[in-house]
Amino acid sequence: MALDRSDVAKIAHLARLAIDEEAVPTYAQNLSNILELVEQMNQIDTSGVTPMAHPLHMAQRLREDVVSEVNQREHFQAHAPSTEAGLFLVPKVIE
């Protein structure tokens, strides 16, 4: 599957990645090469094969819904890019 410039722009938007305009052709080429490698998967018919959800076929453990961690908001926010009154600051969202 060869990707063109507009495919790369669309994927980059979905992934919320700013990509320099001049780098787009290189990404298109590299991503196409990777997808070409990946398409070797189609050599094998897998109809009826159960997808492997977990290497050890284990189910997720459940636990009681009780508080297990203490609140450390100030500690965790100490290295945040921008905070105020215990909140993370971002550019204005609603005009």
Binding site: L3, V8, I11, A12, H13, L14, A15, R16, L17, A18, I19, D20, Y27, N30, L31, I34, L35, V38
Partner: peptide, 22 residues
């Protein structure tokens, strides 16, 4: 979001994120 991620990640990481997103 876009510039922090675009500037913060290197090329190989961006490639893999895009392959996975696709």
């Amino acid at each position: 979001y876009k510039r922090s991620r675009g500037e913060g990640f290197g090329d190989e990481v961006k490639r893999r994120i895009m392959v996975g997103t696709y």
